[in-house]
Structure formats: C-alpha cells, structure tokens
Design a binder for these strands. Structure first.
Lengths: 251, 251
DNA sequence: CGCCCGTTTGAGATCGTTCAAGCCAGGTGG
DNA sequence: CCACCTGGCTTGAACGATCTCAAACGGGCG
C-alpha cells in the first residue's frame, strides 16, 4: 500500500509476507501490519557459497539471520584448532542468538552449500521490538527453542550409542525437512560424514559403519549423500527412547 | 529513603535492591527506578527442601525463577524412566527459560539442598518488559548465556574424556562460586556423584575413580562432598583445551 | 547395634577409536 | 580419451577408555 521503497538490491527484497517459510521463521505470529514493519529492516545479501562464513567467533554481533535457502552449520574452534560442530540450520531457521550474551558471537557460522540468508540487524530489530511486544515474544520463543534443541542434544551425546545417535539425527533432519514441505522419506545430506560425526560426538568411521549397518538392517538406502528411509518405524526404534513428555504422561 | 511498603509476606520481601546477588541476576543492568518496579512483581516462596520440585516437565510455565539460596538441578525424564541432568543452578542464576517455546516446561527442576528462589511470573514480567526495553535486553542476555552454557556442555560431552570432563566441571563450579564471593579453592558439592556422573555423561564409578586419580595426582583433596583444589594450574591443564579465542569473560 | 545409602575399588566385557588400506566419483591435464 | 590425482567415504583389525557387574566400605541415623 505504501509507496514501494527502492533498496540497493531490488531483486533481493525480503518480502516476508510472501515467503513460504514465514510460518517457521521469525515472522510467525506477527500481525500483517507488524510484518510489513519487520520486512523493512530485513537485509538480504548475495548468496553465500560453500565454506563462506556468515559470522565468526569473537566477532561483534551485528544481526541475527534467518536461513532463506541452503544450509549452514555453527561450530566452536578450540584452542588446539579442533572444531566442534554445534548445529545445522535449514531454511526458515534462525541463528545468531549466541551473540546476545556479550555482544560477540561465541561460535562461527558457515555455509554447507550455496545458501542465502535474511539479515536482521539487531540494533533496528531491538528498536522495533521495543515498540512491538509480539516481536519480543517471538524472539523469546525462538531462543527458547534453541535452548531446547541444545538440551536435547545433550541427552543424545550423553545417553545414546552410535546407532541411536545417527538414527535420532536422521529422524530429526527428516522431520525438519518435512515441516518445510520437502519429502520426509528421501533427502540429500548437505553435510559431510565428518561433520555429522563431529556433531554427534563420534568419528567419521563410526558414522560410515553405522550407515552400513542401517542398510544391512534395511532401515535405509544410502548412496553417497542421498538418503532414503525405508523403514520409519524401525529407524525410530533404533533411535531409542526420546524425551518422554509429548505423548505419554509419566507420573 | 522511600517509604517502606508492606506486602503480604513481609519477611519474604524481595528487595532486589539490597540483594547482594543482583549484579549476577536478572536485575543486572537495570536502573534503580526500573528495579523498584521489578521488585514489585517478585514473589518469594517458602524454601524448597531437598528433592522438592520447582517445576515439572510438561507443566504450564508460570514464571521464571532466580535462585536466592541453595542450589537446584534441571533434568529430562526419558520415556523409559531414566533421567538426564541438564544443569545445576547456583544463587543468582536464573532458570525456567525452556518454557518460552510453547508455554510448557520441557524439563523438571528440583532442589539439591534446601533452597529458596525468587519467582517472576511471566505474565507480569512480560507486561513489564513490554514497557521496559532494558528488561527485555537483560532477558535476552540471560537466555543467550543459557545457550552458551549448553553449547559449551556439548563440547564437553563430545570431545572430552573423563578426567577432562570432571576437571572442567569442578573449575566451572569454582569459578561460579567465586563470582558469588565464595572461596574458589574450597567448597562443598551439593550434588551426588550420581548427579555429577549423569550430568557429565559418565557413570558414578568413573566419577569416583577420577576423583581418586586427581587426589593421587595431588590436584585435589576430596573428602566426601568436600573439595579442596590443591593445584589450580594442574587442574586447568587436566581440563584440556577450552573454547578457543579470547579469555571467555562471562558477564 | 545394625541398617541404609552413597561411595570406593576391582576385574572383565564392550563399544567406539585408532591406524591402515583401499574404493569410488569427479575433476584436471597431458 | 585416458591417466592420474584428490577428497570423501568404506572397511578391517587391534587397542583402549569407559561401562558393567560385583563386592566391600563407612558415615549417619533410627
């Protein structure tokens, strides 16, 4: 309705309103009018290529980022040079919250494949949020979800064996892809075995062997990075007991 | 100064303003005037006894909680009844953020010893925050810190061996106690070996053995739950490489 | 005193790591 | 067009850290 605002890269206009990811992403739960205000501060950058970093550990935090296409990972770099992969981010997911604690990012984020993100400068975002309670609430929700994901990962890393870890990972990935309208039963991994291994606290050899076992058990068909889930129930069983809350009320 | 205000349980008056923990806790960074407003919504309850739960998984989230005295732990309950300890909370630390994602707590929190907390009902807190940007910012900081802690724990669980895990845990505890003005070199554990083991993704026997090793190496003196750090450098070395870059100053 | 719980200690079993070799697909240059 | 190379992946075999099972200890408390 208002006059179109020409920005530096018109082709990259954000248009949350029309984005099919908006129900997953930051705009979820915002009113249409609020959404338009939010759109105005979204900056989109040229796409990242595989390996390009979005932000780096210890760097000043300028923005949080919503993945628009492709996928990214975050990781810590230890003093001795080893990496620890903290998470993978798919379209519609928001990353960068680690920077709020002291204004600097604690981890590095880079692209696993060609990816593009919507950049939300925190200065403007907080300014807007100060006037828009629903935006604050959405940010709390997203950060709380990040906490939940990390804590479930703690459970995976401390309680589960190799089969359970990989099965849990694949099911989680499938479910996230599914909620984006993609096939749950068949997909391509954007990350290497090494990245999966690191994320799951295992070695690349163990990941490889476990994939082979799952194939032998007819749970999966694996061809390089292409995964097809043949037996969803079986894979779920292989993932072991989950966090018991959702379905069964335990008292 | 201002006139004293009598509230329903005068003995339990919050008095953030006079609380020596306020620099660590939620009030950090708030103006004196804002602080008085915050105080008015803080409810304090009678103390929790060992084992009493503050909130339970799947329960509706009513509040977030600041530890005033004693200590608590949070944990998931798996479908098969096993527990996974997610974290320990000391005086001045704030817990309950996991409930923001869907209005229900994902984990259970209970007291490790007699403990008291300040209860901050989220309804009123968010109402206040909507009018008080600095409160929002403080909440973001606290949630971001929780994310940071959880992610560092991911590193501990996936990269470190038993000695490194226990050393990291003890140093972290010492540092947190130190920032509360307590002795860094000598303290009592409020949690059992079983809880430590569970938290660190090990068995209680391994914790016990590792304590013995540290004693043999003259890094610690351990007597039941009483710990005295004899060689801080040695223990730091035993903790292995930390998260690289920067002297991660926790604020 | 005797029980109970949390803890310590020992010995064998196990799962994942480490080290090592080889495979496969894709890209490059002769 | 093919030889070669490279990086990512698979597979095998032996080792080792931690788990499991088992027994015993010791302080606190009825």
């Amino acid at each position: 309705m208002a006059a179109k605002k020409v920005i530096s890269f018109p082709a990259l206009k954000a248009a949350c309103e029309n984005c099919r990811l908006s129900t997953l992403c930051l705009p979820a739960g915002l009113e249409t009018t609020d959404l338009k205000t939010l759109e105005q501060l979204v900056r989109r950058q040229g796409p990242l290529r595989r390996g390009d970093s979005l932000f780096r550990a210890n760097e000043r935090m300028y923005a949080i980022y919503a993945v628009r296409a492709g996928s990214l990972r975050t990781y810590y770099l230890a003093e001795d040079g080893r990496e620890k992969v903290l998470g993978f981010y798919l379209p519609g997911e928001v990353l960068g919250f680690d920077g709020f604690s002291n204004g600097r990012h604690r981890c590095t984020a880079d692209a696993l494949e060609t990816a593009s993100v919507c950049e939300l400068p925190i200065g403007q975002l907080q300014e807007l949020a100060d006037r828009l309670p629903s935006l604050n609430h959405q940010l709390y929700r997203l950060m709380s979800q990040e906490i939940g994901r990390d804590q479930e990962m703690l459970l995976v890393l401390s309680d589960k064996n190799a089969q359970e870890r990989l099965a849990t990972f694949l099911l989680n990935l499938a479910q996230r892809l599914g909620s984006r309208g993609l096939s749950v039963g068949e997909f391509n991994l954007s990350m290497s075995r090494q990245n999966i291994a690191n994320y799951l606290g295992l070695t690349l050899e163990t990941i490889s062997r476990t994939f082979s076992q799952f194939q032998k058990q007819r749970l999966l068909r694996v061809e390089r990075r292409h995964i097809r889930i043949l037996d969803l129930e079986g894979l779920t069983a292989a993932a072991g007991p989950g966090v018991g809350m959702a379905s069964s009320q335990v008292t």
